[in-house]
Design a protein around this nucleic acid. Structure first.
Length: 972
RNA sequence: GCUCAAGUGGCGGAAUUGGUAGACGCGCUGGAUUCAAAAUCCAGUUCUUUCGGGAGUGUGGGUUCGAUUCCCACCUUGAGUACCA
């Protein structure tokens, strides 16, 4: 009986689906384990072999955990709101829901054919109203909350109102907008409802604010900072400009400290944590206030170097800073205004591209040094960012590169306040070796001591205090898009009102066009039925808007990260219509135990999700404030592109291709063989003169990798048929008649013709081969190239495995006693497989299987006592063949529920050891010795050995190192 | 510029606490089988060699009886990040 993988795989995939083999129960006496994949965005292109890598790894782990007696939650779903479906809708008029559903169908078929053990009964789609009902619900919870610094958690807005009514906001220590005014209880109680609402908006964790945003005109949307790469949009590479808009924002900055601290409690990859740390950007320093001469105003700055305060020779404000208008002297006004206008025109992109240009203008005003009372000139300069700190800098040119460059450029004095340091060429930025000089009461002190003293002195003056600053900005939460979650929000007199939870979901309205309206409103502005009736609690036609009982609804939609910030919890109880998830479900599943996905989500999804989880924790909804205990980033699978050399004359292709066998790099290797002469003949036949032949050059072009065999040879006929223009192309082959291609590792992409589709692989080699090969390529976390040629190795292994169980006469497994060798092979395999899976070293497990099968084949093992446990070991990796063999061995129940074999150390005990004998650390030969020999006995035997004598060549060894059971090293 | 990761045969990679470098697989070479091919099986495959050996894990140094593994400096590649006061 032969190994018919196609039949077997189809049979078991159907079986698993029909029997719901992998359905996870919320009630179980077993310990739980939650293995999660980052759910895919279902794009129109479908999957290539790089996509399932992480899914295969997590699936192996999930199956392994089931064998180990765990109740495993291993769900899958779709992040199905997003730009590509909407772009397609704009182009074709096709509703994004339709294309999305089609793409999901393709994804599902592709995922199914790889044999994943997903519990599909828990599938979620972010674009499904039954799902986004709860995304809207979380949004409402955020709106109804504020962040209390005293308790260090989110609390209900209703509690804040109670405080305001009783004592105003003077004693409230909250995260709120910078411009929040102080008021007493009398003030509060006298305010109109509108005024009260406006104030509360400054405290809410999601709030509406006029903010400067990254507007991408080409995409018609606002982008988050992490969606911009080098000043252009990550998707499509369109220019991005700064624009003021009223936007929903999330007060994620409230959680900066906890997001940073939480990183120490989770087992996530170091580089990922590092990039979150950078993104949050904590810096410790001081907040200092400088008085302004002839003005009531003050300049607030944040500095990490209060110890250098005596070196401050100027102040710099961001051009957008509020103070600029007020303090600029009449003489400087014209210059300052011209400068502000010029910088406003410069887009973010220009500013990034042009870091070297130093620009700025003097305002004419002076600040006063808090200790020396000397006047300090105030400048504006665009190297100071309005959005960071206070938008103002205490410039200390001797201790900071940018301040130094600015001072040099404008001839501002650079006082030296460092002991024994020359600053004539460059500033001195090293905190660790700083000794302060020329600085009054801090002379001779180091950074730490000086900082402490300066802050104390500033506090005494009431002009400063210690401060921790974070780079993390609040996240804009609005998109001017159609294909996203609608907000459960309507407007009364321009103030946002939440729709009551019990009326959710608010579903996306139909629109004629998916583009922004002519007046520049988001696509939802095209909807004709998009108003909220507060009487009937339904969405009604816009004509009915009277601003008395029927009000306009929000036109923005939520960004991509909204739906992905709560899906991992929703999987625990995905069909619950009453709650986001039941207490029971969350208390059982707790949090994700293992999360696998790409590192590209480091500062997007993974930071926002941590923020939502912390908020949910504060509200008492979840038992952990981190959603995923352990996270692994799978490495990218790269493509192995194939290049062929095309002869060209000038720009003109001669439609003649030359085998890479002739090339070393771009140059010819040889002109001395018959094929070379043949080439000349062909070219002459094409009417190319000998003169032109000398001018001929070559260019490498991509050939589709499906035309290349394992020996890097091109299938010439297939290439000719690829495109009409190649139909009559000529090929100069190597002497042996083969046409070689040049191979290079590049990112897998359509344009490079190196994309490999898993469908093809499953068809030709089977899903089990695909799964094994993806793991066999290398360590999970590393980037590695895909080369289909190598798959014959793992495919051959599966055939060999099959042959252990079957020969031409059928099943050959017997109930005979296993030999000691059989048992030894089995148990060392159990040990290694178990260790490797626990360490997520999936590539080495595959080698271990191969070694085991090679050994058992050589041993001609037919023993059931060996072959049964063996197939359980293999089953997480190659589940289809495992199920089939398991059934053939006589079992009716799925192998998925079989218990993992138990390792017995006693089978591995050796009686002898093949000792490596080293001389000065170099292994020269080995000697087989009994394991229980003493050091002295080993030494005596080794020294008496004739090879030892030959090695020593008459010398007397200085020393003999013996580690029993390991090595012998002879020195001398 | 800064931060992090990684450099091992023709290729992907292995060596888990410092103890036989190159497991396993691809490719390649030779052989068996076949009319032939595919498939399958067997043997070999780091380099070098006077066939005794000798050298060898990016480079240079150090620690050690012994270093791919630990320490220092440098080189290269990849990833992330960037006027953050």
């Amino acid at each position: 009986m032969k190994y018919h993988f196609n039949e077997i795989e189809k049979k078991w995939q159907d079986h698993w689906a029909k029997n719901q083999t992998f359905k996870a129960e919320n009630n179980s006496s077993k310990p739980k384990y939650y293995v999660l994949d980052m759910f895919p965005y279902p794009s129109g292109a479908g999957l290539h072999v790089g996509h399932p890598l992480g899914y295969i790894a997590s699936d192996i782990y999930a199956r392994y955990k089931r064998h180990k007696g765990f109740n495993v939650l291993h769900p899958q779903g779709y992040d199905s709101f997003g730009l590509p479906a909407e772009q397609y809708a704009i182009q074709t008029g096709q509703h994004p829901a339709i294309t999305t559903a089609e793409n999901i169908k393709t994804y599902r078929r592709q995922l199914d054919q790889i044999g994943f053990s997903f519990d599909w009964s828990r599938e979620v789609r972010t674009s499904d109203p039954n799902y986004y009902k709860w995304t809207q619900w979380v949004f409402i919870q955020l709106f109804e909350s504020w962040y209390n610094n005293e308790t260090n958690k989110a609390e209900a807005i209703s509690d804040l109102i109670t405080i305001f009514e009783a004592e105003g906001n003077k004693k409230v220590d909250a995260i709120c907008d910078d411009d929040t005014e102080m008021f007493s209880s009398e003030d509060w109680n006298s305010y109109s409802t509108e005024k009260q609402q406006e104030i509360l908006l400054k405290y809410r964790l999601t709030y509406l604010a006029e903010s400067e945003v990254n507007w991408c005109p080409a995409l018609g949307t606002v982008l988050a900072n992490d969606e911009i790469v080098n000043g252009v949009s990550e998707r499509g590479g369109h220019p991005v400009v700064r624009k003021k808009m009223t936007q929903w924002s999330m007060r994620i900055s409230a959680y900066a400290k906890r997001l940073l601290q939480g990183l120490n409690t989770i087992d996530w990859p170091k580089p990922l944590k590092e990039s979150q740390r950078n993104w949050i950007g904590k810096s410790v320093g001081a907040h200092v206030e400088f008085k302004i001469l002839n003005s009531e105003s003050k300049i607030s700055v944040f500095t990490t170097r209060p110890d250098t305060i005596f070196g401050a020779s100027f102040m710099t404000l961001a051009p957008e800073h509020d103070l600029v208008q007020r303090i600029t002297t009449p003489e400087q006004k014209a210059q300052v205004e011209a400068y502000i206008e010029a910088t406003a025109k410069r887009s973010e992109r220009d500013r990034i591209a042009d870091v070297k240009t130093i620009s700025g203008v003097f305002t004419g005003a002076y600040a006063e040094h808090p200790f020396t009372n000397e006047p300090i000139p105030i400048w504006i300069g665009d190297y100071v960012l309005a959005g960071y700190g206070t938008g103002a800098v205490m410039s200390v040119p001797c201790g900071d590169q940018r301040d130094y460059d600015f001072a040099k450029h404008f001839n501002i004095p650079i006082p030296n306040i460092f002991e024994g340091v020359d600053i004539s060429k460059e500033p001195f930025e090293d905190k660790a070796t700083t000794i302060i000089a020329n600085s009054d009461f801090i002379n001779g002190l180091n950074y730490k001591e000086a900082t402490k003293k300066v802050i104390e002195a500033l506090e005494k003056l009431g002009q400063g205090k210690r401060k921790i600053n974070y780079r993390l900005r609040d996240a804009v939460f609005s998109r001017q898009r159609y294909w996203g979650e609608p907000f459960p929000v309507y407007y009364v007199n321009g103030l946002p009102q939440m729709i009551d939870e019990k009326h959710l979901p608010i579903t996306l309205p139909e629109v004629e066009k998916y583009l922004p309206t002519e007046t520049g409103e988001p696509p939802l502005g095209n909807a004709t039925v998009w108003a909220w009736d507060t009487k009937s609690h339904t969405v009604v036609a816009n004509d009915l808007i009277d601003n008395k009982t029927v009000f306009p609804l929000e036109l923005n939609t939520m960004p991509g990260w909204a739906g992905s910030s709560q899906y991992f919890n929703r999987y625990m109880d995905p069909h619950n219509d009453e709650e986001i998830f039941s207490r029971e479900a969350i208390n059982y599943w707790q949090q994700v135990d293992l999360y696998i996905g790409g590192s590209e989500h480091a500062t997007g999804h993974l930071l926002y999700s941590r923020f939502w989880q912390k908020f949910m924790f504060d509200k008492g909804l979840v038992p952990h404030d981190e959603f995923a205990k352990k996270l692994i980033n799978q490495g990218m699978i790269l493509g192995t592109s194939a290049f062929i050399h095309e002869a060209i004359l000038g720009d003109k292709s001669l439609n003649v291709f030359i085998s890479s066998g002739f090339f070393i790099g771009p140059n010819f290797l040889t002109s001395e063989n018959d094929n070379w002469k043949k080439k000349e003949l062909i070219l002459k036949k094409k009417g190319i003169s000998s003169e032109d032949l000398n001018k001929m050059t070559y260019r490498a072009i991509h050939a589709d990798v499906s035309f290349i065999n394992a020996s890097d040879e091109l299938d010439i006929e297939a290439f000719k048929n690829w495109r009409d223009e190649y139909n009559d192309a000529e090929f100069i082959t190597d002497a042996d008649g083969t046409f070689k291609v040049l191979r290079e590792v590049e990112k897998m992409s359509k344009s490079k013709f190196n994309v490999v589709n898993p469908d093809q692989i499953c068809e030709e080699y089977g899903a089990d081969s695909l799964r094994l090969y993806e793991m066999f390529l290398g360590p999970l976390e590393q980037a590695k190239p895909w080369n289909t040629a190598g798959i014959t190795g793992v495919h051959g292994f599966l055939k060999k495995l099959w042959k252990l169980y079957f020969d031409d006469n059928g099943l050959k497994v017997l109930d005979n006693e296993p030999t000691n060798d059989n048992l030894k092979t089995l148990h060392k395999t159990i040990k290694k497989v178990e260790e490797d899976i626990e360490n997520f070293s999936f590539n080495t497990t595959v080698s271990t299987f191969m070694i085991a099968v090679n050994e058992l084949t050589a041993q001609q093992c037919t023993s059931r006592a060996i072959l049964e446990p063996l197939i359980i070991l293999v089953s997480p990796y190659a589940p289809h063949i495992a199920e089939e063999l398991w059934q053939q061995l006589g079992y009716n129940e799925s192998i998925a529920r079989a218990t993992f074999p138990k390792f017995e150390a006693s089978y591995l005990v050796e009686r002898s050891k093949n000792y490596p004998i080293s001389f000065n650390g170099k292994m020269r030969f080995t000697i087989e010795l009994p394991i229980d020999l003493s050091k002295e006995e080993i030494e005596a035997t080794v020294m008496a050995h004739e090879k030892t004598k030959a090695q020593l060549d008459g010398r007397t060894p200085k020393k003999v190192i013996i580690v029993p059971g390991k090595i012998v090293n002879i020195v001398g």
